[in-house]
Amino acid sequence: MASLIAKSPCAGMAPISVGDAALREVDPGVITSLSPLAGGDVGALKAAHGMAFPAPGRASGKAGARAVWSGRGQAFLIGPAPDAALKAHFAMTDQSDGWAVLGLEGTAAREVLARLCPLDLRPDRFKRGHTARTLIGHMTGSVTRVGADSFDLMVFRSMAQTAVHEIEEAMKSVAARG
């Protein structure tokens, strides 16, 4: 039997550095969608993994163990495998292999993203710990500000190549303007 070798979604495509922006692939670990069950206690997430269940548009936790709001009545637990105690409180699905995760960093990162997303990305409006489900180019995705000049981007895995291409084009376009 052939032995299969796992490939990351953006293998061979990143990292890329253009001007004052850099794009790299992020290994997210385990991604689990959490939808609170009727009568469940969202506080179970904090008890099990230390971060609050995020309000709409917010992310909690820190790199390596984050909860990111991912839509109406849903958040992604990103990093740790979900504790069994969560089962009583959330409907859960493993989405680890479904997403490509990219880190966009640098002083030009916001300008690059502004060419791709219809969001108000000014630092006083879209702060560290804020997240949005939105468009990245013509793909639906997730954008989270994880630092002053640092964003985590998620797109469906099948879109990885398109995402890297479109982000690279935007990076070149911003850099060309000087």
């Binding site: 709409p56 839509g71 109406r72 949005a132 489900r133 939105t134 468009l135 639906t140």
Partner: peptide, 13 residues
């Protein structure tokens, strides 16, 4: 007028 809009590229609501 009241209309239905789907936020498909956002929250999904």
């Amino acid at each position: 007028t009241d209309e239905m809009w789907w936020h498909g590229a956002g929250c999904g609501g």
